[in-house]
Simulated assay, not measured.
Amino acid sequence: MEQIYEHQAFRTRRRHHCRDRDSGFWRVGQSINLTGIFRCIQMCRGGLPAYVTQNGPELNILTEAGVPSRAWPDWYSPANRIWIDAFNESAVYSPDGMLIQFDNGTIWQRELPPVVPPVRRRR
């Protein structure tokens, strides 16, 4: 399922990804929650933190350059890849959700909040 689009004299190919919830696609896809703040560690386009917000299988992404996009599980490998619509590319994420590596070489690493020691209460 491939379509060819023409835009400003450029020809690009785009795979269509099934988003039909009745097909069972979403039930076998994405088993980890990618919601969090990520820091770009390779091939960065900006210096800001990247934000990922996941709602069910769909994701909202704000890149390190401040560019927003929507994403969802990749049709061909929904258990470990996402498709980012605005960039017309996919990305693979690690099983623990700590790294996201885009097809163009950009790598995001999840930032963990600082560990706060437990508060001791006096009796």
Rank of each mutant, 00 (worst) to 15 (best):
N88W: 07
I4P: 07
F87I: 09
Q3G: 09
P95K: 13
T12W: 01
E2Y: 09
L62F: 06
R70D: 07
D96W: 02
R45H: 12
I84A: 11
E2C: 06
A71R: 07
E111I: 14
N60Q: 12
P117E: 06
S77L: 10
G46V: 03
H17E: 14
C40F: 07
V52D: 01
P78N: 10
L34P: 00
D96R: 05
P114M: 08
R123D: 13
I4R: 08
R11C: 09
I107R: 11
T35G: 02
P117L: 05
D74Y: 11
G56E: 06
W83G: 11
G47C: 09
G105A: 06
Q101K: 12
G66Y: 04
G29Q: 02
R13K: 07
R19E: 01
P49W: 00
G47D: 03
S69N: 14
E89Y: 09
A91Q: 01
L34K: 04
D85I: 06
G24P: 11
I37W: 03
N104D: 15
V28D: 10
E89L: 15
R15P: 07
L99T: 09
G36R: 01
E89C: 11
W72A: 11
R14I: 14
R13P: 06
Q30G: 15
P114C: 10
Y51F: 10
N104R: 14
D103E: 14
D22A: 13
R13W: 07
I100W: 04
R14M: 09
R121H: 13
R45D: 05
G46D: 07
R122F: 15
I107T: 12
R27N: 13
V116E: 07
I61R: 00
R13E: 00
T53F: 06
S23H: 00
N33H: 00
T53Q: 00
R110H: 04
I32D: 11
T35P: 11
I82G: 06
R11P: 01
W75L: 08
R14F: 04
Y93Q: 08
P114S: 13
A65S: 12
R15A: 08
E58Y: 00
E111C: 12
V28W: 02
N33T: 03
L34D: 01
L62K: 06
S69R: 06
